[in-house]
Write a protein that binds this DNA or RNA. Structure first.
Length: 298
DNA sequence: AAGGCGTGGAA
DNA sequence: TTTCCAAGCCT
């Protein structure tokens, strides 16, 4: 019994019932879920995914609405640039692929917001192709079970793909199930902080467990702060824009953050990223909400 | 190729 | 309270 087959057997009995995994889910639904799941937990994605798919059941529907609507629908999932890119992705799918999510990996990777993980996930989970699919869960499971290390280091794309490739069964449908099974295992059993080894199908063969669950060696890299950063200020600014339909005067935005320098920097950043647009000298709107011909540049 | 980029919940 | 983490992407 290989690791892949052990994982698949475990997955068949323990997988969560998520809407984008239903038999009737579309490649578009899979793509939307993958983008939403980039750095956002499943529990917060699920209701947002349902709303999104109800409103925009296919790429063409989203492409017809302005980016501002995507940003509003994104709500508080975080990293709203993803909403922008998903909108741009829908436009590209309409323009380049006749409104159908492409199945070719290189065409997927060429879409905005679709990187190594997401492209392979869509090709594999939506189209049943055989590709290694490596996310943070897979990296953790493989490095523990195979290498015996407590935590995966920084992502090293090529090496990670090669390592997973070696574990994949030869036929595509089984390989796809193996990938989703490894991911699920990392998500609910082989978790970062409190792995539930008693529930793990790799219990008896896991190199990490067999060597006594050694702790991480050096000091962990310190996570990025959030409070007081430009990111927080951007979030506050965007929160105002999201809940306003018309132009928002600069004066209103001035209220969200004391530090004028930082506030201006955050605002300029949002414009730079294309999330918002300036209207005249002192009004702002979400991207795409400006009346024709009234967009000003800084 | 490190670091920027949101948000909320669990420990 | 603070820290850490959650199916990354882009530059």
């Amino acid at each position: 019994m290989t690791l892949a087959h052990e994982a698949i057997t475990w997955y068949d009995a323990n997988a969560r019932d998520l809407p984008w995994r239903q038999p009737d889910s579309t490649p578009w639904g899979v793509l939307v879920s993958e983008v939403m799941l980039q750095q956002t937990p499943v529990v917060r994605v699920e209701p947002a995914w349902r709303s999104w798919m109800t409103r925009w059941p296919e790429p063409a529907a989203l492409a017809e609405d302005p980016p501002s609507e995507a940003i509003r629908m994104w709500g508080r999932l975080g990293y709203p640039r993803r909403a922008m890119r998903l909108h741009a992705c829908a436009v590209a799918i309409v323009e380049r692929h006749g409104g159908r999510v492409p199945s070719d990996l290189d065409e997927l990777l060429a879409l905005p917001g679709v990187g190594t993980y997401t492209g392979r996930a869509v090709a594999t989970f939506a189209y049943g192709q055989r590709h290694p699919v490596v996310d943070t869960n897979v990296r953790r499971v493989v490095c523990r079970a195979v290498e015996g290390k407590p935590d995966a280091g920084p992502a090293t794309t090529t090496a990670d793909l090669v390592a997973m490739e070696a574990l994949l069964p030869p036929d595509a449908p089984t390989a796809a199930r193996a990938s989703i099974a490894f991911m699920e295992l990392g998500a609910i059993v082989c978790t970062a902080r409190s792995p539930k080894c008693v529930d793990c199908p790799f219990h008896d063969v896991c190199a990490w467990r067999l060597t006594g669950l050694p702790l991480p060696e050096g000091p962990s890299r310190k996570p990025q702060r959030y409070a007081g950063t430009d990111r927080q200020v951007r979030g506050l600014l965007l929160e105002v824009l999201r809940h306003t339909s018309g132009p928002v005067p600069r004066q209103r935005l001035d209220m969200v953050w004391q530090d004028e320098v930082q506030r201006a920097r955050a605002l300029a950043g949002l414009v730079e990223d294309g999330l918002i647009e300036t209207l005249g000298a002192d009004d702002f709107v979400l991207a795409g909400d400006a009346p024709q011909g009234e967009i000003q540049t800084l």
